[in-house]
């Protein structure tokens, strides 16, 4: 029968081993693969400014991006492909709440520069290699 000492060894040993594997894989992911998959060479000043605007207004509090966030407003990973620059900028710069089918977005009234930065950010996000996400709707009438 298992003794308390063996149980302790299982806990400490297992933790150390799996933690080291996790650190190794994380290091490999972040230093080798992520820069390629996210096209880090295209991470321009404008994209970074766009991310700052995205973060500081908690856009993730309604939208999802890379599938992460809240589920009150549309997924934004492929928003440029889906809506195009004109639509996206109109929603961002609107002085009254943008409200498709009645659901209101906060009226941020961003300047033209800010809206361009966000567009750059979304464009950069949209070009990432996300291992197949979002999947093509497979039951859609073609």
């Amino acid at each position: 029968m298992l003794s308390k000492k063996q149980a302790k060894l299982f806990f400490l040993g297992g933790t150390v081993v799996f933690f080291l594997i996790f650190i190794g894989l994380s290091w490999h992911s972040l230093s080798v693969e992520v820069p390629k998959q996210t096209h880090e060479e295209n991470l321009t000043e404008a994209v970074i400014r766009g991310k700052e605007i995205f973060d500081s207004n908690n856009c993730m509090g309604c939208h999802t991006i890379l599938g992460e966030g809240a589920y009150y407003a549309p997924e934004l990973t492929k928003v440029m492909e889906r809506r195009g620059v004109g639509y996206v900028k109109a929603a961002l710069m609107s002085k009254v709440p943008w409200a498709p089918k009645g659901r209101k977005m906060v009226a941020y009234g961003f300047s033209d520069d800010e809206a361009n930065d966000l567009v750059e950010f979304f464009t950069w996000i949209g070009n990432m290699d996300l291992n197949g996400f979002p999947a093509e709707p497979d039951l859609k009438n073609k």
């Binding site: 297992g14 933790t15 799996f18 992911s29 998959q37 992460e68 996400f133």
Partner: peptide, 18 residues
């Protein structure tokens, strides 16, 4: 810890990670 540490990987499927 045996399952949970590497289980973090289920958040790394579709966010630009390998």
């Amino acid at each position: 810890f045996l399952s949970g540490i590497l289980g973090t990987g289920h958040h790394f499927y579709f966010i630009g990670t390998p």
